[in-house]
């Protein structure tokens, strides 16, 4: 069992942020084509590219990515709810039914953002072997965005899923109805304020029973 803890793999070395010219070029070309609709981007060198666009430029961004960058492959589309869960992380709960905490400040991820809900789509270029993630902010009062079906027909089901899970409306989507849940289901499960009732009734036992590796001291 000694091999479980090796000494020769040193992972603490700080990786310098390396410049990534290909991804910089992609971001620049998107920014040129979208003009004011382009908000900002974030690059992790040699790894990935995030771009945030305005809500009105959502379909334009997809078209530009397909035609200018060669991202023919439609990977997926979804949304993120940045609201910190009002129920806390249930598994950390030591008491039965923890009182809802005061909401932590919302903190958006890479490429920033201002709103609670963000659309995310992932596109990939099979010739360049590079992908990018495009995000767009959705204002709380008006959770709607244009559909991508005209650009990528495969977006159809993904948008139905996002509509069901987050309650985001897709303008001009021909067939927006439930994809997973039965019709009488109420609520949007992937919103952070949707409670998992089974957990409210029967609490998670907590993290007390974490098993330690052999020979490891309890800190």
């Amino acid at each position: 069992m000694t091999q479980l803890s090796s000494t020769d793999t040193d992972t603490s070395a700080e990786a310098e942020p390396q410049p990534d010219e290909r991804r910089e070029a992609w971001a620049a070309r998107l920014a040129d084509s979208l003009g004011n609709g382009y908000a900002e981007h974030h690059i992790i060198g040699g790894s990935d590219l995030w771009v945030r666009v305005a809500r009105d430029s959502w379909t334009d961004a997809a078209t530009a990515a397909r035609d200018l960058l060669g991202c023919q492959f439609f990977d997926w589309l979804s949304a993120i709810d940045w609201l910190p869960s009002p129920f806390g992380r249930d598994m950390d709960a030591q008491e039965d039914n923890p009182e809802p905490k005061a909401a932590d400040p919302m903190e958006q991820g890479h490429a920033g953002g201002e709103t609670r809900f963000q659309m995310v789509m992932r596109l990939y270029s099979i010739t360049e072997h590079m992908g990018l993630t495009i995000k767009a902010d959705l204002p709380d009062g008006d959770l709607s965005i244009d559909t991508l079906i005209g650009v990528y027909p495969g977006a159809d089901w993904h948008e139905r899923e996002a509509w069901e899970m987050f309650g985001i409306h897709f303008n001009n989507h021909p067939d927006l109805r439930n994809i997973y849940l039965p019709g009488e289901f109420e609520g949007n499960p992937l919103r952070k304020d949707f409670p998992l009732l089974a957990r409210r009734v029967k609490p998670w036992p907590g993290i007390v029973d974490v098993e330690l590796f052999p020979g490891e001291e309890d800190s």
Partner: peptide, 17 residues
């Protein structure tokens, strides 16, 4: 060689995407 790198027992993944 070994099959496991050195990682903490209780895993907390740093913020990021």
């Amino acid at each position: 060689g070994p099959v496991m790198a050195k990682v903490p027992v209780i895993i907390k993944v740093p913020a990021g995407e």
